[in-house]
């Protein structure tokens, strides 16, 4: 399954990230994960949000330069070696990871590893064959954000 990540072009200057988060807060869009990749004077803010389409519209309306990019959100076990298994699999298939970041879903249980890859169809195929679970936008949206607080 494919998930969508928002990428926002931003100059490296104070207030750019604040603008992004304020727009999303106003629209009640939940941020699952956020990373910033930057060159010296400019960068790209990557956001995994619960409603990417609405987020894109809101950010675009606010004058930001946004694009929606397909990514794969892979569920991996949150334990030593969990990530390695995934990475080894992709490397063995000559799939190049262009950007990646992760977040924990349930401590010591599950984590999500988000990857941007050069061959998205092939990657999906490979992951499916190896029984990796992937999440799409709605699956990401339905994650209970505070479930780790359940006793």
């Amino acid at each position: 399954m494919i998930a969508y990540q928002l990428s926002i072009f931003a100059e490296n200057k104070p207030g750019r990230l604040a603008k992004v988060t304020s727009v999303l807060a106003r629209e009640k869009i939940n941020i699952r994960a956020i990373t910033i990749a930057s060159s010296d004077a400019f960068g790209v803010i990557n956001i995994l949000a619960d409603d990417p389409e609405a987020a894109r519209k809101a950010l675009g309306d606010a004058g930001l330069t946004v694009s929606l990019k397909p990514v794969i959100a892979v569920v991996i076990p949150d334990k030593p070696g969990g990530l390695d298994k995934l990475i080894q699999l992709l490397a063995g298939q000559d799939i190049n990871i262009e950007n990646a970041y992760g977040f924990v879903l349930e401590s010591w249980e599950k984590a999500v590893f988000v990857i941007e890859v050069d061959q998205i169809d092939k990657t999906q195929h490979v992951l499916k064959a190896s029984k990796f679970e992937t999440l799409d936008a709605s699956a990401l949206a339905s994650i209970e954000p505070f479930h780790y607080m359940k006793y």
Partner: peptide, 18 residues
Amino acid sequence: EVQKEFFSGDLKQLENLR
């Protein structure tokens, strides 16, 4: 200024443009 439509969300693309 970067063209809005050009931006694909990729830092590498921006660096190549630069």
